[in-house]
């Protein structure tokens, strides 16, 4: 799916005024220059509530141009309410082409997932971030967390991981799993599942993170080290799924559970809808789809 929209609104291009976009671009440039460092910016009121991606939308609005192709996903899916409305927002205000295809997009805005299809040089992945400060729930004082970042004092984060192992026998955190960026700054990939953490590591794409309510922007430039924290004897591990996607048969991908009926029937399918559809179009068949087609 690829459509072209014409700007039919009285708003400035991509909704934000030019001064605001310049201000945000400066913040983005600074963020790229200091990988993982949270740059404060003057977050604007957006025509959507906090928690719906106001940070990501402002970042996207500041970098988007008429020649871009935009993809928006929420939980890996292109067709959830949030994804659809943000996509429509930019179709309307930025006259930009939109797509659901990962490889066709130049800018991908996401709320959690990183697409299964590997990103390439020139692509920009924009994350919507609710809580940019990884130390926040351990240390409530902003003055103190800033100092901890300044001095790279990150022992406390390991205390949290220690607590997990002591309580659960393993590091129980499955999303927003803390990472070190370029060996210097501790970064929250919030609320990305830890399954996707390895995709951030040395990705050829530019990764930008926008937190609207918390007024922070941070970035991982292409080919930057993003290392998940762990212990020598409890190394970082991604969650493994014990079955392939029920629809496309893909293995080693992130799966969502879908309830089929009220008798306990369920299936596990790709959370990345584009990936699943692409595979099915290529003829791959998972367990359930296979059964249905046999029946038909």
């Amino acid at each position: 799916m690829s459509t072209t929209a014409t700007a039919t609104t009285p708003y400035n291009y991509a909704y934000l005024d030019e001064q605001t976009k310049r201000m945000i671009r400066r913040a983005i440039l600074k963020a790229i220059a200091i990988p993982g460092y949270q740059v404060p910016f003057a977050s604007r009121e957006m025509p959507m509530p906090y928690g719906w991606g106001t940070g990501g939308v402002q970042v996207t609005a500041s970098i988007i141009g008429p020649t871009d192709t935009l993809k928006v996903i929420d939980q890996g899916s292109d067709d959830t309410t949030n994804a659809v409305s943000i996509r429509k927002f930019f179709q309307k205000t930025a006259a930009v082409a939109v797509t659901t295809s990962t490889s066709a997009a130049t800018i991908i805005q996401t709320r959690h997932r990183i697409p299964e299809t590997p990103l390439t040089a020139g692509q920009v992945l924009v994350f919507q971030v609710p809580t940019p400060e990884p130390l926040r729930f351990l240390e409530p004082r902003e003055t103190e967390t800033r100092k901890m970042h300044a001095l790279a004092e990150y022992g406390l984060m390991h205390v949290k991981l220690y607590e997990d192992i002591a309580k659960h026998g393993r590091i129980a955190k499955t999303y927003d799993y803390p990472t070190m960026v370029a060996g210097r700054y501790l970064m929250a990939p919030s609320p990305t599942p830890k399954f996707d953490n390895p995709k951030m590591h040395r990705s050829p794409a530019l990764q930008l993170f926008g937190a609207g309510r918390e007024k922070r922007i941070y970035a991982v430039p292409p080919h930057t080290d993003v290392v998940s924290l762990d212990f020598d004897d409890y190394p970082f591990e991604v969650n493994k799924f014990d079955r392939p996607c029920a629809l496309c048969g893909a293995e080693n991908v992130y799966l969502d559970e879908v309830i089929l009926d009220d008798r306990g029937g369920r299936m596990f399918v790709c959370s990345d809808t584009d990936h699943c559809e692409t595979r099915r179009a290529e003829g791959h068949r998972g367990e359930i789809l296979g059964q249905e087609e046999t029946r038909a």
């Binding site: 022992g155 406390l156 205390v159 220690y162 762990d230 020598d232 004897d233």
Partner: peptide, 9 residues
């Protein structure tokens, strides 16, 4: 951990 211990055991 603050001074760099990274072995849980």
């Amino acid at each position: 951990m603050a001074v760099g211990s990274r072995h849980y055991g």
